[in-house]
Amino acid sequence: GAPPLPPYSAGGREVTMKKGDILTLLNSTNKDWWKVEVNDRQGFVPAAYVKKLDSGTGKELVLALYDYQEK
Rank of each mutant, 00 (worst) to 15 (best):
G56C: 06
K71Q: 15
A47Q: 04
G56E: 13
A64G: 04
L5P: 08
G20F: 03
G1A: 14
V45H: 01
E14D: 13
A64D: 00
E70K: 09
S28R: 07
M17R: 00
L23V: 06
D21K: 03
P3N: 05
T16F: 09
A47S: 14
L63D: 01
G1T: 11
Y49F: 15
D32A: 07
P6V: 03
G43K: 02
A64R: 01
W34T: 02
W34M: 04
L65S: 03
I22Y: 05
R41V: 14
L61M: 12
P46C: 02
P46K: 01
A47E: 03
S55Y: 11
L23K: 00
R41C: 06
R41Q: 14
L53A: 04
L5N: 06
Y49N: 02
A10T: 12
E60T: 15
P46F: 02
P4E: 11
S28I: 06
L23G: 13
Y8P: 06
P7C: 10
I22E: 03
K52V: 13
K19V: 09
Q69T: 15
G56D: 14
D21F: 04
L25F: 03
L65K: 04
K35W: 15
L5R: 10
V62E: 00
V15S: 04
G56T: 14
S9W: 09
L61F: 12
G43Q: 01
K51W: 06
L5W: 06
S28L: 04
D67W: 02
P46I: 02
A47D: 01
V36T: 01
Q42F: 08
V45G: 00
L61K: 10
V62S: 02
F44H: 04
K52I: 11
A10C: 10
V62P: 00
P3Q: 04
P6W: 02
R13S: 13
A48M: 11
V45M: 00
V38E: 04
E60S: 11
E37I: 09
K19N: 04
D67P: 06
D21P: 00
R13M: 14
L65R: 03
I22A: 03
D21N: 07
L25M: 04
Q42A: 12
V38N: 12
S9A: 13
P7I: 11
R41Y: 13
T24L: 12
T24I: 13
S55F: 12
N27A: 11
K71L: 11
D67T: 05
K52F: 09
K31P: 13
V36R: 00
F44N: 04
F44P: 01
V50S: 01
P3G: 06
T57M: 15
R13D: 13
E70I: 08
V50K: 00
N30Y: 06
G1D: 14
L65G: 01
S28D: 15
K51A: 13
D32K: 05
Y8W: 09
P6I: 03
A10E: 08
A48H: 08
L5A: 07
G1H: 11
K59G: 12
L26H: 05
E14Q: 11
L65T: 04
Y66I: 04
E37P: 00
D54T: 10
S55Q: 09
T16L: 07
S28W: 10
G58L: 12
E60I: 15
P4Y: 06
E14K: 09
L25D: 00
E60W: 09
V15H: 05
P3L: 06
P4C: 06
K19C: 05
P6A: 02
A64F: 01
N27Q: 13
G12V: 07
D54G: 14
A2M: 13
A64C: 07
K35T: 07
W33L: 02
I22C: 04
R41D: 10
K52W: 06
V36P: 00
D67N: 07
T57V: 14
N27P: 02
N39A: 13
N30G: 11
Q42L: 07
K31D: 15
D32N: 09
G58M: 10
A2S: 12
D32S: 07
S55E: 11
Y66T: 03
R41S: 11
E70L: 06
D32L: 10
I22L: 09
K18W: 09
D54A: 09
D40H: 11
L61V: 09
T29Q: 12
G20I: 00
G11T: 08
I22H: 04
G1W: 10
A48D: 08
W34H: 02
M17T: 04
L63G: 02
P7R: 02
K19A: 13
P7S: 14
G11C: 10
A2P: 11
V38G: 08
L61E: 11
K35V: 11
A2C: 10
N27M: 08
N39S: 14
P7W: 05
Y49D: 01
G43L: 05
D54V: 15
L53E: 04
T29F: 09
W33A: 00
G20Y: 03
E70S: 12
G20M: 02
W33P: 00
V62L: 12
P4W: 07
L25W: 01
V36A: 02
Y68K: 03
W34G: 00
G1R: 05
L23Y: 10
P4S: 10
K18G: 05
V45D: 01
G20L: 02
N27H: 06
Q69D: 12
N27T: 07
G11S: 12
T29E: 13
Y49H: 03
D40Y: 10
Y68G: 00
S9T: 10
V62H: 02
D40A: 07
D54K: 07
V38K: 14
D40R: 10
D40T: 11
M17D: 00
V50C: 08
K19L: 04
L25I: 05
K31A: 12
T29V: 09
T57D: 14
L53Y: 14
G11V: 11
S28A: 13
T24H: 10
E14H: 14
E60V: 15
R41G: 10
L5Y: 07
L25H: 01
K31F: 08
T57L: 15
G12W: 09
K52S: 07
Q42S: 12
L26E: 02
P3M: 06
L25R: 00
R13Q: 15
E70H: 13
K51D: 05
K51T: 14
Y8C: 10
L53P: 01
L65W: 03
L25N: 01
L25Y: 02
R41L: 14
A48V: 10
V15N: 04
G43S: 04
L26R: 03
L61R: 08
I22W: 03
Y49Q: 02
P6S: 02
G43N: 02
R13V: 15
G58H: 05
G56W: 09
S9K: 05
S9V: 09
K35E: 15
S55G: 13
K52D: 04
N39V: 11
L65H: 03
D21Y: 04
W34V: 04
N39T: 10
P6Q: 03
R41T: 11
G58S: 12
Y68E: 00
L63W: 05
G43W: 08
L61P: 02
Y66A: 05
W34I: 05
G20P: 00
K52M: 13
A48K: 08
P46L: 02
K59P: 15
N30T: 05
K35G: 05
D32M: 08
K31M: 11
F44M: 07
G20T: 02
E60H: 12
A2F: 09
N30S: 11
V36L: 03
S9R: 05
E70G: 14
K59S: 14
K51P: 01
E37R: 09
S9N: 12
A2T: 13
Q69H: 09
A48R: 12
L63F: 07
T29K: 11
